[in-house]
Nucleic acid binder design. Sequence first.
DNA 1: GTCTATAACAGGATAGAC
DNA 2: GTCTATCCTGTTATAGAC
Lengths: 208, 208
Amino acid sequence: MKTDERIALAMAELLRKQGYGATGINQLARAAGAPTGSIYHHFKGGKREVAAAALRQTGAAYIQLLPLLLDAHADLAVAIEAAFAAAAEDMENTGWANMCPVGTVTAEVADTEPTLREVAAEVMGTWIDEGSRYLTTRGLSETDSRSVIFAILTAIEGAFVLARGLRSAEPFLAAGRSVAAYVASLERAERAARAAGAPGAARARAKA
Amino acid sequence: MKTDERIALAMAELLRKQGYGATGINQLARAAGAPTGSIYHHFKGGKREVAAAALRQTGAAYIQLLPLLLDAHADLAVAIEAAFAAAAEDMENTGWANMCPVGTVTAEVADTEPTLREVAAEVMGTWIDEGSRYLTTRGLSETDSRSVIFAILTAIEGAFVLARGLRSAEPFLAAGRSVAAYVASLERAERAARAAGAPGAARARAKA
DNA sequence: GTCTATAACAGGATAGAC
DNA sequence: GTCTATCCTGTTATAGAC
């Protein structure tokens, strides 16, 4: 593996465990098995630029998990609940280390590091775009898909925070149940609209 | 206002905007209108102890908002969706500054500051206890109440992160819709169980 | 209790030999 | 491209006058 890739990867690992402020250049150098100077050789912008690369890299990797996890079940609601349970298990197995550097860093430096905030926004944007595109392939309308991907992302990021603080899987399990129920209610509404009304139109909004 | 209260309050304000690592003692002293030495006079434990006090203080204040906001509507699902919309508006008006130091600090230092993590867990614990107790007064069963308060808290904390990164109210609005739909589906299930089965028992679980 | 000055140290970043 | 030594600025924390 190339040196710059090793550095960015090590940064991602440190970011998700410690956040941006607590991660030092020397610690990063040790973790990446490279001397301090090499970091500045590969990343002229220093710590900030390494962090940006790490966010982009892990952001791209994470969104690929969505179809991978959700394709496992034919019923979308069931698939979502299972995915949250899987995330909970993963997190418990890693000692409640956070699994999403993007969320951690965003919360931490959104008001103090403008460029990192922009990188985070860019990453989140791709999550929303690719995620909602996937959800339409699972039968949701476009507006519902956008709503649901936001529901999933907010629930996951929030579950990370609660689970990390409480050292408990319960936030993930509850959040998964909640989002799954939301999706089930949307599917019910869309089915009802298709059965009752004009074909190809989802005019009746989910109210009950 | 007493000096130590001013210091803790200023710390809470800085924590929610900047996080723990980026907040320095000198900056805190300036913000609180007190010299550096006074901080150590009132908080022997230094920065860490001030942060702990700030988390406890704001944590207690925040959970009081829940009944205040949700009592506004007779329909619980409607109340929840409205509360998320209100939070979105508040956040937009403050320039997307985070509104929850507990979440920010937890994500940031859960693995590096054990005592602060414990304080955060304690605060979240009171949120869950008091929140679920309130929800039972709104007619939810005890197990459903616990599920719903987790759903609300994870959705809110996650929405903070996404909204802060994207500088958009959409995460809050979508998260609110999702949790509201979840609550509506639970209420529907409990009503059906009461109508069909034994009185006072919610044996039928929400499946559809 | 309030404030100032400073100690003791760690941080990010750089220069320049190899 | 790799590594070492070092600069400079910031930090937390303290000592001690008022």
